Simulated assay, not measured.
Amino acid sequence: MKALMAEFLGTFWLVLGGCGSAVIAAAFPGLGIGLLGVSLAFGLTVLTMAYAVGPVSGGHFNPAVTAGLCVAGRFPATRVVPYVTAQLLGAVAGAAVLACIATGKPGFDLVASGFATNGYGARSPGGYGLGAAALVEGVLTGGFLLVILGATSARAATALAPLAIGLALTLIHLVSIPVTNTSVNPARSSGVALFAGGAALEQLWLFWLAPLAGAVAAALIGRWLFADGDTTRST
């Protein structure tokens, strides 16, 4: 139960801090932190919670990471569903708190604002299509998992693993915010989509399928690449 609570809190913090930076920046254009600020906010949420509660649960905060670690042999299959459930609940709770804060500004519209949801085509910040969105989400999630596997292997300086993982997530956002508004995390996408509704929910399937596919592919590579220095720890 402590591990599940840690996953809930970590994912809650990721959605509140990461998506919150984008939503509040959009709500207050004069105080906007821009692409770099939002990217850094997402990286910092993972970095801080990985240090805070990572020792309790492994610090996944992401269903694609949990699935990938399972395929890589770093995490037991029996714990995947409970972890993913805790992550989804944390994402919804984070989105709920964010919605309450954001709507505290008169005239703020959750749907019209986009509420930091992910999308392709007309819902892509840069107008990118389905193929580009699927590719960037799959490849970058795969790269993220490889960083996690390498940073937490027995040959790595594991005390610095949260720093490498947080910086990797920052880099991912710098690349992909213009394409999909960056998911690489099905829980993060689901939490805000439930509040935005409509097209955000209609396109949510991609932000489960592509990150999971990318994570599984990277896990299979990681099983071979890090085999000599593998460890049973997840992060």
Score class of each variant (00 low, 15 high):
M1R: 14
A3R: 13
L4M: 13
A6T: 09
F8G: 04
T11C: 09
F12M: 04
W13N: 09
L16M: 00
G17E: 07
C19H: 06
S21Y: 07
A25I: 03
A26G: 15
P29S: 09
I33Y: 00
F42Y: 08
G43F: 09
G43T: 06
V46C: 07
L47F: 14
M49A: 11
A50R: 12
Y51Q: 08
G59L: 01
N62V: 00
C70P: 09
V71P: 03
A72W: 03
R74Y: 09
A77C: 10
T78H: 15
V81H: 08
P82S: 08
V92W: 01
V92M: 05
A93I: 01
A93S: 04
A96T: 02
A96D: 03
T103Y: 00
T103M: 08
G104H: 00
P106L: 14
A112H: 15
A112Q: 14
G114S: 11
N118S: 03
Y120P: 14
R123D: 10
L130C: 10
L130E: 14
G131I: 14
G138C: 02
G138Y: 01
G138F: 06
L140F: 12
T141L: 07
G143Q: 06
L145K: 05
G150Q: 04
L160Y: 11
A161C: 05
L163N: 11
L163I: 10
L174Y: 03
V175N: 10
I177K: 06
I177M: 11
N181Y: 12
T182A: 02
S183C: 10
V184D: 03
N185V: 04
A196T: 08
A200P: 14
L201C: 14
E202W: 00
L206V: 05
L206S: 07
F207M: 11
L212Y: 04
A213D: 12
A218G: 08
A219S: 04
D228T: 13
G229Y: 11
R233I: 15
R233E: 15
T235K: 14
